[in-house]
Amino acid sequence: MKHEQTHGTPMKYGMAIDLDKCTGCGACMVACMAENNIPFKEDESEKLVSITWMRIFKLSNGKSFPDLDICYLPRPCQHCEGHGGHSPCVSVCPATATDYSQETGIVSQIVTRCFGCRYCMGACPYHARYFNWWDPVWPDGMEKYLSPNVSPRMRGVVEKCSFCYHRYQLAKNKAYLNGGRRVPEEAYQTACTQACPAGAIVFGDLNNPEHQVHQIVKPDPDNGNRSRNDRAFRLLERTGTNTKVYYLSSREWVRRAGDNYLAHEKTGQVAKLHH
């Protein structure tokens, strides 16, 4: 790997999203849009071309009235680790515009390197990546609220959730200035985590036993980082993407919706891998 400054154990930032608490209100989506200068068009109802780094999906148990149950699932970039940082998108990027950081576990997206081939979009199993088909246009006057921390993207590049990486950089600088070596848990939180009125999102370092996210997820490094929490699951976990966004639900049908199970397979059952 390249030379990267690491201090002690590398960090592995990740999330635990409690779907029992999530109400699908959309505050995370808008907090993300406001934090990251995400543009908008007059019509945003064509969701395939609507840029939403964080998007809420609605799940249903498929039953009829009155047995129907619904659940919302917020989907940021899952920041796949794969095996040793081989996340699906990183493996296919010909421009090295997206990379897996061994220091933070964050999958980056360097828009100025991206030349828009969109291989990464094809590779991403989570539809977490979006292509800028148009130049961003802010209605007259609205460019005033744009944040200098995140560059607005131009036409022809792919963008996605960065776990608010600029917040990490700010927190890291602050930690150094204060003489600390590590970024404290509360000093680096993503915009969606901070906004969520239901407190459904917990963000932090999955490697750090003192962080709440670690305590909730209890990742098992000997088992592909699967969670030891019975309520937890990851999206398409069995594909080996080794994502860092864990979901929690007390409802079995919701956990089952996180992967493509065959009828006879039990929820959470790991298919035998053939090497």
Binding site: C25, G26, A27, M29, V30, A31, A34, P139, D140, G141, M142, K144, Y145, Q194, A195, C196, P197, G199
Partner: peptide, 22 residues
């Protein structure tokens, strides 16, 4: 009232402040 959290409407306030429909 809200201890650090905020709703989708509150988050969108700046689009109202700076928006062209003022």
């Amino acid at each position: 009232v809200n201890d650090g959290s905020i709703c989708i409407l509150g988050l969108s306030g700046l689009q109202m402040l700076y928006g062209p429909t003022r």
